[in-house]
Design a protein around this nucleic acid. Sequence first.
DNA 1: ACTACATTTCGGTAAATAACGAAATGAGAT
DNA 2: ATCTCATTTCGTTATTTACCGAAATGTAGT
Lengths: 113, 113
Amino acid sequence: MEDLTKVFKALSDPNRIRILKMLESRALCLCEISFILSVANSTASQHLSILKEAGLVIDDKDGKWVNYALTAASASVYVNELMPLIKKWLIDDKTIKADRKKIEAADRKILCS
Amino acid sequence: MEDLTKVFKALSDPNRIRILKMLESRALCLCEISFILSVANSTASQHLSILKEAGLVIDDKDGKWVNYALTAASASVYVNELMPLIKKWLIDDKTIKADRKKIEAADRKILCS
DNA sequence: ACTACATTTCGGTAAATAACGAAATGAGAT
DNA sequence: ATCTCATTTCGTTATTTACCGAAATGTAGT
């Protein structure tokens, strides 16, 4: 029960939904995410840790950077069944589309400095 | 986006999940729900209004009583796709099973007085 | 109209949450 | 070893949330 409500709680914040939808495009580092959301790095980091705790996201350290990505096969049954739904939802959402555009234009080397 | 996070927020509380799972058995009135959850009527009422706002639950006035039931075909796409998942989840959860037992034994005429 | 009773709304309190900036951590480069 | 810079953790603050009891609402029956 607690596992389930933890996943739903992770999904109940607009910024965290935006992060998940961003990660559909590609893996992103913290500063790309905080830039696109327009929040402090510490805030984005906190959101990512909540998504990680729920099993929705994994992190992959690459030297100085940490790449965040959607969990491909989560340990959580709930996550595995919810992910496909989330993927097909919000495709036409204005904010989500704008975020996607920003990701295409974003260059980590310029952003993160 | 807000529609979606509203649904997830509604689902992110254990007591509200318990209510949804209870309503799988049958429609229930407020006092049956607050009795089974062991919370004040006002608290249960608040939870139900959140579930109603999200489109997860409908209410059907029957004189003095208000019967709450799962929304059969919700206006929300999100609800319609999430409901079947929630229905098959938590079947073996201890609390959910205990709640179901209490519902079978519950008699509104005795409880609500 | 009055009573009884299920439900909702109101006012208040304690705990959880989202946000920030600053300080701490960790890994690559000099 | 030192510096740089991405990330995390810490301390704080404002907002939201879950809960309660009391008062208000609404409906059925007398």
